[in-house]
Design a protein around this nucleic acid. Sequence first.
DNA 1: ACCTTTCTTCACACTTTCTTAACACCTATA
DNA 2: TATAGGTGTTAAGAAAGTGTGAAGAAAGGT
Lengths: 224, 224
Amino acid sequence: MSKALIIDDEQQMRRLLRMVLESRGYEIYEAADGPLGLQEAAFHRPDVILLDLGLPSMSGIEVLKRLREWSDVPVLILSVRDQENVKVEALEYGADDYVTKPFGTAELLARLTVIQRRRFTRQNPEIIVGKLRLDLLHHEASLNAEQIKLTPTEFALIKVLAENSGRIVTQNQIIRQVWPGQQTDQSEGLRVHINHLRKKMGASGPQIINEPGIGYRLESEGES
Amino acid sequence: MSKALIIDDEQQMRRLLRMVLESRGYEIYEAADGPLGLQEAAFHRPDVILLDLGLPSMSGIEVLKRLREWSDVPVLILSVRDQENVKVEALEYGADDYVTKPFGTAELLARLTVIQRRRFTRQNPEIIVGKLRLDLLHHEASLNAEQIKLTPTEFALIKVLAENSGRIVTQNQIIRQVWPGQQTDQSEGLRVHINHLRKKMGASGPQIINEPGIGYRLESEGES
DNA sequence: ACCTTTCTTCACACTTTCTTAACACCTATA
DNA sequence: TATAGGTGTTAAGAAAGTGTGAAGAAAGGT
């Protein structure tokens, strides 16, 4: 049975979510604000977290940030309409998906299933981009079936790029996921690590393309 | 190739749907009543199900209910006019959309595409104006599903226009949002960036219309 | 404590993007 | 037709962003 943690300050919303999720067999924990939510997350180790962005005392973003320093639990964001910027920020900090209030229960459950399945497949997990293969379980990378040695930072970096292969990943997205809970400007170092990765991957594997002023994009070798 | 399952008791309707969908490259399975439909769904694992609400022996709602106990496959409801209550009920039980008989094939195919895409793609914050699509998370822009490369300033500019598409945005409004905290007169540069955007978007996408003395307006290609 | 590995910082060359400026154009008005 | 205000277009210098090598700092293992 999956455990779900609901972090929302409105009791009515918590009750609704509890009903919907319990009917699907979830075991429910609730928290009315951010600090409590983090506490519950640490204690009960839920399999998925539903996080409201409009919390009192501590913003949802802040909760997510702290959470991501030590946990990879799937997080579904609950937001109201017209918070586009905040939603983008939440996804950059590693939220998995979001639904907009008010939402249909069918949509909510579908998204929950999807993000949980995504994490689950990552327990025996690998990401493949062209000739590059990342073994997330053993933190090993191979190119053309030949193993290449990556440092932890390099691995975290290529992982972010590979998860979004073909799409641009902004520098903020990268930095927030590779160096969680860091406030110093890391964009200096980012360039260096990108440089190292390019050297190790060479010309035969996927290419790390720079989009000036925005970020980077991992492109499978075969594509245009 | 996508697999589609048709659950309908009228043979004539099944034949019609099969023709339409096969011409679109779907692989078709059929079932004449609810129990058979569930069986086929479990066995073939279709990518989408077309479900008639007026079934004998087991109602469409009942089929949907049972289906949703173990599957998240997108379901398109086929209903006749004057079944509003049933349609609402179907949506509450997790149907994705419905069409009313008799329906046009174009509408049917369009809805199928939409609900399938909705299931499998992660929802990113995006703005869509006609053929133009802005992905706010990845800072990507595409026109006719083809990616176009925009610089950061260009992206910020088209974003402001797209958020207010159809409406006039004054030059001051634009400048304040694209160059926040700037006091030097930026209206010189604005014209240049507008020019670049027009070139990159060409004649097929939305048009940037100038309203002399006031500002600009983004107009979706189809409108007057 | 030592050595090794990894990370960060810095300097500088290079590339892309932005801003500025000049001028052509378009439209309304006298 | 002349004039003026606003706009479209182009080009070039300025600014910002990026690639790269190396060296010092930090972390980890022995």
